[in-house]
Amino acid sequence: MRTSLCVLAIGCSVAAGCASQPQPVTTTHAPPAEPARAGPPTAAPVGIVVPLGNAPEGVVVGTSGIAAVAVRDPNGIVLFDAATGRERQRIPTPSAARHLSLAGPDGPVLAPLEGTAELLELNLIDGRITTTVTGVGRQPHDAAATASGTIVVTNEGGGGVLFVRDGRVVGSLPAGPPQPGGVAAVGNYAAVADVQGNGVWVYDGSTRQLVSQAPVGAKLTHAVSLSGDLAAFADTDGGAVYIEHVDPKVSQVARIDAPGKPYGLAYDARRHRLYITLTERNAVRVVDVADPAASRNLADVATVRQPNSVAVEPNSGAIVVTGSDGGGSSSVQIIGPEQLAPG
């Protein structure tokens, strides 16, 4: 069992009782973890496949059944019906978002724009951009809303994170992961994956402090909240997904085998299922995590090419997968619950 090592950072205090020596971080410029460049699918994608803009990637689905997907060239966010793929609205954005998240069960949508260092909050029902926060680092990658109301944005190009409240940046911590990627909200905490191989870093949204750090896997990319104080992290270079307790110390619960460059993650809280995109295999792995310590692989389901992101429609249990081959072929795939696993 691995437990976290707490980190000291200038201007930050750490949880009482932690070791005083900081965890070393990578200082080289080794390539970060990236998804596989997928070849053409060898099996027909399951479910419905619809074109919805160029190079779709980040995707979310609200309790209303409305989904949002980030596209580029032209840059924007497309709202669509998660059951049918029918397009509802297109909202142009100043630059492209790689990832989207939801601040609540039905929004607003949080969209970090990598090219213009902005964080948009967008109404999922009517597409209105309600808030634009500027100066959120350099190439902001992902964002998560903690229970305290603080939004934590990962500053992939500059290192560390920024804290946003009431439509403005209220703090930043450059110390910490040199190239943060995905982030998951676990109560008041935000657990951040470092794509350079330095594990998981945990920030308190209330105090805006770095509170713990732990080595996890080889090189992580993305993170998703599970039930309670659990989060899952895609170890893209290590071919696995780790389930971790975050309280705020980080301790391992399970390692799920996921060969094929795992990348996108989504969690169905109602059905206790974790979905993992296997980018090298053009597949999504369905995992039963009702007992996280004894997780069970249920199925690998054929997807569109380059399945970088996945989201769950919480009512039906269907999932939405985004795919793009980089050569002009882009699509969104909707897989019904009856097609996801036996039984």
Rank of each mutant, 00 (worst) to 15 (best):
T93C: 03
E280C: 06
P105N: 10
A231R: 00
E244I: 04
I243Q: 01
Y242M: 01
V133W: 07
A16P: 03
E244F: 01
V195F: 01
E87K: 14
S331A: 13
A258D: 03
Q252W: 10
L122D: 11
I335G: 05
A193S: 05
R285Q: 14
T134H: 12
R128C: 00
A36K: 15
R37W: 12
E313C: 09
H29P: 02
R273T: 03
S251G: 11
G39A: 09
A117E: 13
V320P: 00
H141T: 12
R72T: 05
A9S: 13
A311S: 13
L162Q: 07
A33L: 03
V133K: 04
A318V: 00
V78F: 07
T322K: 00
L278F: 03
I125M: 14
D106F: 09
A117C: 08
Q209N: 15
R138C: 11
N297M: 14
K219A: 15
G11I: 04
A302F: 10
G260Y: 05
R72G: 03
G17H: 12
I77Q: 03
V46H: 13
A144G: 14
V312M: 11
E156I: 00
P35Q: 08
P337D: 13
L52R: 08
P262W: 08
G85E: 07
T207I: 15
I335P: 01
H272F: 05
L220M: 10
D194M: 07
P22A: 07
D235Y: 00
A231H: 02
D291V: 12
R37V: 09
N54F: 04
D126W: 02
I10W: 06
V211L: 10
S225L: 03
Q333K: 14
E118Q: 13
E313N: 13
T207K: 15
Y189P: 00
V25K: 05
A232T: 00
L52W: 04
P178C: 15
T279Y: 07
C6F: 02
P108E: 04
G11C: 07
L5A: 10
R165F: 09
R281P: 03
T3M: 09
P174N: 13
D288I: 04
P56R: 06
N315D: 09
A144P: 06
P74Y: 12
V332E: 04
A38D: 13
G264M: 09
V211D: 01
V192T: 02
L119M: 03
L278R: 10
G167V: 03
H99Y: 13
Q89R: 15
G159N: 05
A234T: 00
G47R: 04
R168Y: 04
A240E: 01
E121R: 12
G62P: 09
G336L: 08
